[in-house]
Nucleic acid binder design. Sequence first.
DNA 1: GTCATAACTCTTAATTTAATGAGTAACTAC
DNA 2: GTAGTTACTCATTAAATTAAGAGTTATGAC
Lengths: 123, 123
Amino acid sequence: MTGRKTSSTNYSNQIFLEERCSLNELINLLSKRWITEILFGIEEGNNRFTTLKEELRHISDNILADRLRLLEEYKLISKESFIEIPPRVEYTLTDTGHELSRQLEVLCNFSDQCMVSKKAVSC
Amino acid sequence: MTGRKTSSTNYSNQIFLEERCSLNELINLLSKRWITEILFGIEEGNNRFTTLKEELRHISDNILADRLRLLEEYKLISKESFIEIPPRVEYTLTDTGHELSRQLEVLCNFSDQCMVSKKAVSC
DNA sequence: GTCATAACTCTTAATTTAATGAGTAACTAC
DNA sequence: GTAGTTACTCATTAAATTAAGAGTTATGAC
């Protein structure tokens, strides 16, 4: 999870795209592996680190931690820590998070119909 | 552009996600760099390799070729080749492609409002 | 005193993705 | 006969992303 090399063409191209359209910024976030499932999981009330980890059986700890951090940074989820031993932390969707989730469900219906098995079929 | 290693955890996790929800397959496609801009470009009538290359100033040839191939494979665009010298090839959106483009515009409005400068603001 | 627990962090290694730069075909204009 | 055109392909290198595995902290249960 070390930072990017901001002097690379790779980086400046990403910036070019994000400046052209904020959709590219959103897609860049959504394309991080596991992130949609984490968002949907939290929406459905699966709101803790360990239970999310159980649901998404193959995710590794550092990735889950990173994704939760990202979602919080983008204000799509918020985090509440309870001072207990062992610690308890709960995540919930923000209003923006709920709105995104709703939009993604629409897109999901589209992909269900149109992305069957690696190739689109006519809608 | 060589193939993936299908025995990796990286690969099997991607499959796990795509089987969980087809949205992940769609996002995986949309997350390929430049692909949304190519889709929008073609929608707006910028329908040739060279002109797309000019519009997206920093894209490299092999990436553009790969993205066009992908979009065609997913039946979001179709390709017409004219037997001329120098060759001429034109791309157009399929019905599915138009529908996707429409859906992405909605998502784009969302991201315009909510992804201001790397961090979401309340809607 | 050893183990378990939750929610993480850190380093390193494997894998995937994107970029660079050269090359191709077939013809036209100069 | 040299350069220019379009729509590509190919091999190599650079960079980014993901995964693996160990470590942390404070406490309660045994």
